[in-house]
Amino acid sequence: MAKTPGKNAGKNTSGRGQRDLFVKVKSARGRKLSSTQWLQRQLNDPYVARAKKDGYRGRAAYKILELNEKYQFLIPGARVVDLGCAPGGWIQVAVPRVNALGTRTSKAVGTVLGIDLQEVEPIPGADIHVLDFLADDADKQVMEWLDGKADVVMSDMAASSSGHKQTDHLRIIALCEAAAYFAFDVLEEGGTFVAKVLAGGAEGDLQKLLKMRFTKVANVKPSSSRSDSSEKFVVATGFKGLQGDD
């Protein structure tokens, strides 16, 4: 007589879901240990897999999604500038939320402008240019493309890693400060500045600067940031415009 299948037949009885199966990457000749560790982390990162499934160009999309869900700065009609926008994940999030394609006929139509040092694959609803935001008159060029000032300036930029933690911290803080000064030039009064920083002790001057120029400054580590990363994001809202000058 054939036996009746038990209640656990066909089920994973190991007590682990599929994403709990850790993928270990073997070292290879010519590959640095840091590269092997990065690849292993990518293969075991649920946000990487989720980004592929959702059609985003990178896991960073979930960071701006989470920040916007909390602070609501990407709204219909907003004019958004994304500094260092490659590969474009933040732009993909911004386009539908500011209604850049005009698909929500009852809502205002916004603008999404991305700039980067390298070419970025086009994204429907966004205007993407190759531009160094540190170049002379870059602010004027951006406002010309926007046909006015921005409501949001956001940046997920990070300086190239040197492998030295303190040096990398100083570099990204300097980059964030440069992005902040750029934002001061192009933001509309009441606007928002969002940028990635690294925790490490040198960000105090940046915080003071932003608190002088904005009505509220928050520091957030999204749940989608890797737990072993020192990155966090500053969200400065309510730009004071000329009132923020000494």
Score class of each variant (00 low, 15 high):
T103F: 15
T103L: 15
R104W: 08
R104C: 11
R104G: 07
R104D: 13
R104T: 05
T105N: 05
T105M: 10
K107T: 08
K107A: 15
A108T: 11
V109R: 12
G110W: 10
G110H: 13
T111L: 15
T111N: 12
V112P: 13
L113Q: 08
G114K: 10
I115Q: 07
I115S: 09
D116L: 13
L117P: 12
L117H: 11
L117D: 12
Q118H: 15
V120A: 11
V120S: 10
E121W: 10
P122C: 10
I123N: 04
I123W: 04
A126D: 07
A126V: 03
A126H: 03
A126I: 02
D127T: 12
D127N: 14
V130W: 11
L131R: 09
L131K: 06
D132I: 09
A135L: 06
A135H: 04
D136F: 03
D136C: 01
A138G: 09
K140H: 08
K140C: 06
K140V: 10
K140L: 13
Q141D: 13
Q141H: 13
Q141L: 14
V142K: 02
V142F: 03
M143E: 06
M143A: 02
M143V: 01
E144G: 12
W145E: 11
L146M: 02
D147K: 14
G148N: 11
A150T: 08
V152H: 01
V152E: 00
V152G: 01
V152M: 04
M154R: 09
S155G: 08
S155W: 03
D156G: 12
D156R: 08
D156S: 06
M157L: 15
A158M: 08
A158T: 04
A159E: 08
S160G: 11
S160T: 13
S161M: 15
S161Y: 15
S161Q: 15
S162T: 13
S162L: 09
G163Q: 05
K165P: 02
Q166V: 06
H169G: 01
L170W: 09
I172L: 12
I173V: 14
A174D: 15
L175R: 02
L175D: 00
E177T: 04
E177R: 03
A178E: 05
A178N: 10
A180H: 02
A180E: 01
A180N: 03
A180P: 01
Y181W: 13
A183C: 00
A183F: 00
F184C: 05
F184V: 00
F184W: 04
D185T: 00
L187P: 01
E188N: 15
E188P: 06
E189A: 15
G190P: 12
G191L: 03
T192W: 08
T192Q: 06
F193V: 00
F193D: 00
F193R: 00
V194A: 06
A195L: 07
V197H: 07
L198N: 07
L198E: 01
L198Q: 06
A199W: 07
A199E: 10
G200T: 01
G201M: 09
A202Y: 06
G204E: 13
G204M: 10
G204R: 08
D205E: 14
L206Q: 02
